[in-house]
Design a protein around this nucleic acid. Structure first.
Lengths: 212, 212
DNA sequence: TAGATTGTTAATCGATTAACAATC
DNA sequence: TAGATTGTTAATCGATTAACAATC
């Protein structure tokens, strides 16, 4: 629809989008080719108006009395989210979490392609985890520049996260996906930082449980 | 402060709290014993009024012209978040992500104690990962009831997440920390569900990168 | 046509931020 | 005292939701 003037969607809208995609993919197996926001509302527990508002940011047109064409809707949301654009990434910190991310095949479904990982531990450097080569952190800057890497994933302990982030910034990384529980300082503001905030999620759980 | 009438904090406030704790712990090593919201504002990039508003939900009193006592503030926020109350948990899905969570020693810092894990794969059942025993999923309900487990962590593929959630609900679990990218349906609403939403975080990154 | 649905405008709600009195 | 800071009240901002016209 519209899309003449490109107003970027509010962040809460962006955060709901993947839920729509995963839900819609589940419908693909079924007999229906169209889905209405009233049905989505029931299944997802979201307000139908909110769903329509969210979908208004996406390049799709619904049919009155019918709904949205499922397949096209999935494609449109994926395009909106940038999942169909490949983003080369490097990962720093090949510990438990880092390894889990490297093994998460699904990641390239989101357009993220981890081309290499870095660590400092001698036992890890030179090895491969889930097919991804691990090199010493001192080689990172060179690789980023050479391969024109856009995304850096930080899965090192909090104490080393800032140093890694600064190195990434200096090497020309465009965006950082940060799993360390600290707030990164980026001096120039040409690097976008997204914090995974697992501990925030866990804290909401703990807090609600406490007040039960 | 107040705390006479216990108004639960807004969720955005709860989500910022862990950032405060991690930041404050970093200060403990330093020479200062007090911290002002103006200093926190500079270091964290948050509005100082917002920080004071957030702290108003916590059982702490600041000193005029001085700030908040760091050590007491940490303790107060941790208490607020329920990190100091132990919550026994079970984890279902001993794959990459599940293993990473089992290996994440830090988890008990947040009060989460994973007592056992479950899976269906014969190669995994009977083994231990990071010291945590893995049993067959068919034993789950019994263990939850016997050990009075409160928290269930779901790290299975999306296709099996709903079935696991329903089993947890029936067994009397109080809260679910869900890593599967689907919206869980809980029939009775006496189970609190917190979605980790890693893919939402990743989508914000991909979306921002697309519009760069 | 009647009725279900989209898509938008307007109202509401809640969180953030500005302003400022109180304090030491 | 002067000035920095807390803690709160009021204003602002933005997201959610209600209402409804347009459509098929």
């Amino acid at each position: 629809m519209k899309k003449d003037l490109l107003i970027s969607a509010p962040e809460p809208t962006i955060r709901r989008m993947p839920t729509y995609v995963h839900y819609l993919k589940g419908l693909e197996a079924g007999p229906e080719t169209f889905i209405s926001t009233s049905k989505m509302s029931v299944d997802l527990g979201f307000d139908p108006t909110q769903i329509r508002k969210d979908l208004s940011y996406v390049d799709i047109v619904g049919k009155n009395r019918v709904g949205y064409p499922i397949e096209q809707l999935i494609k449109a949301i994926e395009d909106f989210l940038g999942w169909n654009i490949r983003k080369d990434a490097i990962l720093v910190g090949a510990g438990h979490l880092g390894s889990a991310l490297m093994g998460y095949e699904r990641l390239d479904q989101y357009g993220i392609n981890i081309v290499m990982a870095f660590d400092v531990q001698p036992g890890k450097v030179g090895e491969k985890i889930h097919g991804i080569e691990i090199r010493h952190i001192s080689k990172m800057a060179e690789v980023i520049k050479q391969k024109n890497i856009q995304v850096g994933i930080i899965t090192v302990p909090a104490s080393q996260a800032q140093a890694v982030a600064s190195m990434m910034e200096d090497s020309g990384i465009k965006a950082i996906w940060n799993f360390a529980p600290i707030s990164l300082n980026i001096s120039k503001n040409n690097v976008f930082v997204e914090n995974a905030l697992l501990y925030s999620s866990l804290s909401v759980l703990a807090c609600k449980l406490k007040n039960l």
